[in-house]
């Protein structure tokens, strides 16, 4: 049974799918409600342990959502085991939040969506806003009863793009959400972030640069529908019915943009290329454009 949607926010009603977000007020009121599971997903693997929203369980993107050997996500069995262990049922409403403006929360939401978990939402403003508002956090780890989450095979065909998909997509809208320095090829990793090896710098030909952060207001919440439309429709020129692929460096920041395009603006065909620059920038003979211009679709070889 899904928990009722948050209808308290006027801002949310403007979004294509208002049910995908909850406000801190709403979450606080609904904490502990049967059928609701709160999940924290952070960049820092120990941040949850320093204090989290009461009742929240932790899901770590690196050690829990990824396969240990292959560069891929869990399979259906692994996902079922993980969610059962976390005490999450297939029909539960999941609200995810995290650090860094919900990057990893959006990433977790996207991975959960690959497995078709239906009701998964984000806490607008994430961990930082919750704490900034002086709301309660605790170090107490909840003991949720183990569930029997069913084995559902991951469906990569709708929300996920692979390198081969991007190659045939060239000419259709492609959004590079990395920093301007990464886009131009001056650097191959985020400013102030560790080197994550890619052998070449630049961007995928025709990709337009829209750093993820442009979708976020100063308090860490998502910008209004009007502000987002001004960026993605008016400025970048996305139109209803467009097929869009977003990418970044390893797929976490582009999950954030994917969430904006798919759920807040209602584009029906949006995929996240999680291989992103760490794959593209090290691949042999794939086309790359350096500099600030998107560049043209390369002639077929």
């Amino acid at each position: 049974m899904a928990v009722e949607f948050d209808t308290s926010s006027e801002k949310f009603t403007e979004y294509a799918d208002p049910s995908r977000l909850v406000t801190p007020d709403w979450l606080q009121e609904h904490l502990g409600e049967p059928g609701l599971v709160v999940v924290e997903s952070d960049e820092d693997v120990l941040l949850y342990e320093t204090g989290h929203i009461p009742g929240a369980v932790k899901v770590d993107w690196h050690t829990e959502l990824n396969d240990e050997v292959v560069r891929d996500y869990l399979d259906g069995e692994g996902f079922a085991k993980l969610l059962s262990r976390k005490g999450i049922g297939r029909d539960d409403t999941i609200v995810i939040y995290g650090d860094k403006n919900n990057w990893w929360a959006a990433y977790a939401l996207w991975v959960f969506s690959l497995f078709g978990h239906e009701d998964v939402r984000l806490l607008d403003g994430g961990r930082d806003l919750w704490i900034a508002q002086g709301r309660e956090i605790t170090t107490e780890v909840p003991q949720r009863a183990q569930t029997e989450y069913p084995i559902v095979e991951r469906d990569d065909s709708v929300l996920r793009a692979f390198r081969e998909d991007v190659l045939v997509h060239l000419g259709k809208p492609l959004i590079d959400v990395r920093s301007p320095e990464e886009y131009t090829g001056e650097r191959t990793h985020m400013p102030e972030y560790p080197q994550e090896s890619s052998l070449r710098g630049g961007h995928i030909p025709t990709a337009k640069s829209v750093p993820w952060k442009r979708a976020v207001a100063d308090d860490g919440t998502f910008k209004s529908r009007k502000e987002l439309d001004a960026i993605y429709r008016d400025e970048i020129g996305l139109n209803e019915g467009d097929e869009v692929i977003a990418y970044c460096r390893i797929g976490e920041r582009s999950s954030h943009t994917w969430f904006v395009l798919q759920h807040l603006l209602g584009f029906q065909d949006v995929r996240n290329y999680d291989g992103s620059w760490t794959e593209w920038g090290s691949s042999v003979r794939v086309p790359i454009v350096a500099g600030s211009e998107p560049g043209d679709v390369p002639a077929a070889r």
């Binding site: 820092d44 693997v45 120990l46 941040l47 342990e49 320093t50 650090d99």
Partner: peptide, 8 residues
């Protein structure tokens, strides 16, 4: 403080 792993 938001980076406990790094602090550790």
């Amino acid at each position: 403080a938001e980076a406990p792993t790094t602090r550790g």
